[in-house]
Computed example of a mutant assay.
Amino acid sequence: MTPQAILVGIAAGLAGGLLFAGVVLDSSTAVGLALAAPIPVAIASLGWGTAAGFIAAFTAAGLLYAATGAGFNALSLLLTMMLPTAVAGHLAGLARPVGDAAPGQTPPLDWYPLPRVFHALVGMSVLACVVLGWLVAYDPASVAADLAAALTASGATAEGLTPEQVSQFARLIADLVPMVQPAMLVVTLVVGLYLGALAARISGRLPRPRDDIPAAGRLPRVAVTLFALGLVAALLPEPVGLVGGVVVGAYFAAFSLVGLAALHRRTRGRAGRGLLLFAAYAAIVLLLFPILAFTVFGIIETGRANRPPVAPPGT
Rank of each mutant, 00 (worst) to 15 (best):
V136G: 10
E301R: 07
P309G: 14
N73Q: 15
P97G: 06
A215C: 04
V117Y: 09
A156N: 03
R218W: 01
V190S: 06
A86L: 04
E159N: 12
P308N: 13
Y138P: 13
D212R: 03
V117L: 14
V191M: 13
M81G: 02
P239D: 09
V131G: 02
V191H: 06
A158Q: 15
P108C: 01
P237M: 05
A283T: 00
M82G: 02
F118I: 08
R268W: 07
A92D: 15
G314M: 05
T85A: 01
L64M: 13
L185N: 11
A51D: 07
A44T: 06
A67H: 07
C129A: 13
A56N: 06
R268P: 05
A66M: 11
V191F: 15
A199R: 14
L14C: 10
F294G: 13
A30K: 07
S28N: 04
P214Q: 05
A70H: 05
A228Q: 03
G249M: 03
P163V: 00
S76K: 08
L109P: 09
V122S: 05
A170V: 00
V143C: 04
R266F: 00
V248C: 09
I284Q: 00
A74C: 11
A60H: 04
G314E: 10
L135F: 15
P182M: 10
G99E: 11
S76V: 02
G259M: 12
A279S: 15
V166L: 14
L189T: 01
A150L: 09
A234D: 13
V23E: 10
